[in-house]
Design a protein around this nucleic acid. Structure first.
Length: 857
RNA sequence: GCCGGGGUGGCGGAAUUGGUAGACGCGCUAGAUUCAGGUUCUAGUGUUCGAAAGGACGUGCGAGUUCAAGUCUCGCCCUCGGCACCA
């Protein structure tokens, strides 16, 4: 290596410029500006104790390159960072060690911030947010109260994982192979009181809103499938011998004549009435067995159908025929009406079931063409109606609406739309989450609240939210918004309550309160009851919110992180709008991205926001695997720590390499050798830019240099716009390889290269920019523009093909005509050797590119 | 099972969207610099036949369209994701 002064000392360079950017507030986003705005958002991390993983920076570097590029293009750029810091690991750590989750969280956040800063991102750190700050979750609670007020929150019993040994509710990820992750104890499904959000009320809006989003198609498809809209009909089947109907939902009303039996879910409310006394024991046993199965068991054991005949019959409304009613767990209570009409001839599951239990299979749709498969059942395609009375001969698809209309006119049914989407269980029986700002009062006190004019009355939903506790019906009342945040109480014991309730249920001085029906003020019942009739005794809601809550609206808070009056200032929101670019893992394709769209759309409907959709442009970065091609994991021991990489090669090399690995969206393995390659490239840039003797003697560049330079400007610009950073980097490598080879080049060319490199390797670019005699930071220098005139060479190479195979080439002036080129091709000796004894049947000329002579013989 | 990506050198990946396949990087070979290692530089590097000039073959497999196919069409194989009894 050359002497020390010439060394690329990335450690000191990176430290120097990180301090400079912080001191100068280089990346502060201005709230009002004449410039157009650009808002680049990363999915914010959960600050785990393990620290930053090599996968985190991949997305952050991508958004940072865009942020820096847009800044150079003259935009007012917002690139913020924050912490999604509520969640299970901090609580589990607290249970184990007694350390308060807020302490753990603070330590982890500090570590994450240090690591992220060490990579040199163009982040406006004044806008840092943390979902566990009361000043933040105050507004999470505020949004919840809005949802509550509009009747979009309710309370219901819902099944959750319960571990009798741990006496605690477990999250899905705490259950591994049907056992608790901690201690390997058996777990079961158990119904517990849950707060639920009515996201299904937004199914149609969430579906329709997808159309205009610039998102990966696969993500849109997943959301569509998750919402699962289907069109069909609800059909009423009178129960034989009873004055009652069994209502089913079907997407195939055209197959109604083929309905030879019916199935109700084991949880169906009419099941008791349907079961005849002879069958009671058998059905009860079946229902009990089904109840023990989790959703997963019921769906996993897909192959073998089971069920029991109830002994009852229904009347098919279309033809008056009697059909038996069965109970089977392949029908789910949560979808449609919890009951189906089974058409074995035209549905695979019904077919399998009918085969197994010897039930009639009646074909009602004929195969449209008479090939060998024409008689094969089940047949689920389209066709012509048969065995269907007056409908015979009609096209089945057309018949769907006709039969539905006919049923409707006889009041036997109606057209219906169904969704797979379920309401969102919004409560967790945990400590480390946002407290839900509701209190529970008696029926009389609830009535009084309705009759008492004051703050609370206006915040109560039209339909009361109730729950049953110890045989008494309790009514939910909201805390007033101006009393938020409802803070998590300080607390020493994080052990589960043992009853399935949150640990908060054990803190009686927090739980039991005096509540003012007029103002919503509350104080602990440890204190004496205040004077005044409107004070009543109440208990707080002890559930907390799920981790999703804080991430449902954080994109808004970055716009106005300190605002104590509103969740976001309306003017600022209309200036910044939503993120112009949002990047994060594909694992959030449905849950986070759907929940956030729901809240955002709700706030828009409430007039709080100006835009209906939060994330216009979305991108998923691909996973970075370990060097062995496996997913990085501690147990395999293939985890790469960014701190170690930065120590060895510097942040610029890390940034560059994460982008050079391959397409941003692709899954790709890490490579130690590979990072050495990009590190060499940076060293080469460093060395070449400091070779003053080489560019001081040249005021101008030769034509070839200019061509390569402007090609590079063009390609890097296009590649950055298209998020093809790997291609941009290889083009910069081509340029530096060229500069290294020529005897001299202008200092402007070196500076242009630095500008192109700056978004990728900002520290080195800044440092060399300064060394080359510039006055200030490179980040605000306007992005270079390619000169198209310099891209066109005076001489062009045209290749000669015979029958599509390359046989020669020639240099021509760029204005050359077709005839001359073809003549030249034919005179080429090598081409001639392939033409010998053959007849030319066609001559193709692609201007400026190639000649192809098609020959025969 | 259904839906959706993807199969290009020893490896990561390029290819102006039908027009010179393998850019760029890694690795490897040889040489120069060096006491040596590292660094840096030069040349080479798809397979195969050939001493060479050059030829043949070549983008998972098989067909097809075309003057021309990694790119378009059809069939198949493999692989990676997502969903999974949704009536």
């Amino acid at each position: 290596m050359a002497d020390d002064e010439q060394n690329y000392n990335f450690t000191s360079i990176e430290k120097k410029w990180q301090e400079y950017w912080e001191r100068e507030n280089t990346f502060r986003a201005e709230d009002s500006s004449d410039k157009p705005k650009y808002y680049a958002l990363d999915m914010f991390p959960y600050p785990s104790g393990a620290g930053l993983h090599i996968g985190h920076p991949e997305g952050y570097v991508a958004s940072d390159i865009l942020a820096r590029y847009k800044k150079a293009c003259g935009y007012n750029v917002l690139h913020p960072m924050g912490w999604d810091a509520f969640g299970l690991p901090a609580e589990q750590y607290a249970i184990k060690t007694g350390t308060h989750p807020s302490v753990t969280t603070q330590t982890n956040v500090d570590n994450f911030r240090r690591q992220i800063k060490s990579i040199g991102f163009a982040i406006d750190w004044e806008r840092e947010i943390n979902t566990t700050d009361p000043g933040y979750y105050q507004w999470t609670q505020w949004i919840f109260l809005k949802l509550f007020q509009r009747g979009l929150a309710y309370v219901d019993e819902k099944p959750v994982w319960w571990c009798p040994n741990l006496r605690a509710v477990l999250a899905n990820e705490e259950v591994v192979d049907g056992k608790s992750e901690v201690g390997n104890h058996p777990v079961e499904r158990r119904n517990l009181r849950q707060v639920v959000l009515r996201i299904t009320a937004y199914a149609e809006k969430l579906l329709a809103g997808l159309d205009d989003l610039d998102w990966p198609d696969s993500t849109k498809r997943q959301q569509k499938a998750w919402i699962g809209r289907s069109e069909g009909a609800e059909v009423k089947f009178p129960i034989d011998g009873k004055d009652e109907n069994l209502t089913v939902y079907t997407t195939r009303p055209d197959t109604l004549f083929g309905a030879t039996y019916m199935v109700v879910a084991p949880e169906h409310p009419l099941l008791d009435q349907l079961v005849i006394s002879d069958k009671k024991d058998e059905v009860n046993a079946y229902v009990l067995a089904a109840a023990k199965k989790s959703d997963l068991d019921r769906t996993d054991l897909a192959k073998d159908k089971s069920g029991v005949f109830t002994g009852s019959y229904c009347i098919n409304p279309i033809n008056g025929k009697k059909v038996p009613v069965w109970v089977a767990d392949y029908v789910l209570i949560s979808y449609g009406t919890g009951a189906i009409m089974a058409v074995p001839a035209h549905d695979e599951r019904d077919y399998e079931f009918a085969q197994k239990f010897g039930i009639e299979i009646k074909r009602v749709i004929a195969h449209p063409d008479g090939d060998e498969d024409a008689n094969k059942l089940p047949y689920t395609g389209a066709g012509i109606m048969v065995n269907s009375g007056e409908y015979d001969g009609m096209d089945a698809n057309i018949c769907k609406s006709k039969i539905t209309a006919d049923l409707e006119s006889k009041k036997h049914g109606k057209a219906a739309i169904n969704y797979k989407l379920r309401d969102w269980i919004f409560s967790r029986q945990r400590y480390w989450g946002e407290p839900i700002p509701l209190v529970w009062v008696s029926e009389q006190d609830y009535q009084r609240a309705l009759d008492t004019s004051g703050l609370i009355k206006d915040l109560i939903p039209e339909k009361p939210v109730t729950t049953e506790k110890d045989g008494e019906i309790l009514y939910a009342l909201p805390l007033p918004p101006n009393d938020l945040p409802l803070k998590l109480p300080e607390f020493e014991n994080y052990q589960p309550s043992g009853t399935g309730e949150s640990p908060l249920a054990t803190i009686s001085e927090w739980l039991e309160i005096w509540f003012d029906l007029q103002t919503g003020k509350s104080i602990s019942r440890v204190d004496p009851k205040p004077d005044g009739d409107s004070w009543v005794s109440a208990t707080r809601e002890t559930n907390t919110m799920p981790q999703w809550a804080g991430s449902c609206w954080y994109h808004l808070r970055y716009i106005d992180p300190q605002n104590a009056e509103r969740l976001v200032d309306k003017e600022k929101e209309s200036y910044w709008g939503g993120p112009d670019f949002y990047i994060g893992g594909a694992e959030h394709a449905v849950l986070h991205l759907l929940y956030a769209r729901f809240w955002h759309r709700f706030l828009y409907d409430e007039g709080v926001l100006a835009n209906p959709e939060p994330y216009k442009k979305l991108f998923h970065q691909g996973l970075i695997l370990g060097e062995d091609g496996n997913k990085m994991s501690k147990s395999v021991g293939n985890v790469v720590n960014p701190d170690v990489v930065i120590d060895a090669y510097g942040a610029d090399s890390l940034r560059l390499f994460e982008m050079f690995l391959g397409p941003l969206e692709a899954v790709k393995p890490w490579s130690e050798k590979g990072i050495e390659g990009v590190h060499r490239f940076l060293r080469k840039v460093h060395r070449e830019c400091l070779r003053t003797e080489k560019h001081s003697q040249a005021k101008e560049d030769n034509k070839e240099t200019l061509k390569v330079l402007h090609e590079t400007i063009l390609k890097v610009t296009e590649a950055v716009e298209d998020l093809r950073f790997n291609v941009a980097i290889s083009q910069m490598m081509i340029l530096i390889n060229h500069l290294q080879k020529v005897d001299s080049y202008s200092i402007d060319t070196a500076k242009t290269l630095l500008q192109l490199l700056a978004p990728f390797a900002p520290h080195l670019a800044e440092d060399l920019w300064e060394t080359l005699g510039q006055e200030s930071s490179i980040v605000n220098k306007p992005w270079p523009k390619a000169d198209n005139n310099l891209l066109i060479a005076e001489e062009i190479t045209i290749v000669f093909q015979v029958n599509g195979k390359l046989r020669g080439q020639g240099q021509f002036p760029k204005e050359i005509d077709k005839e001359s080129v073809i003549l030249a091709a034919k005179s080429d000796t090598k081409v001639q050797s392939f033409l010998e004894g053959k007849e030319i049947v066609k001559e193709i000329y692609v201007p400026g590119k190639l000649v192809n002579l098609a020959v025969r013989g």
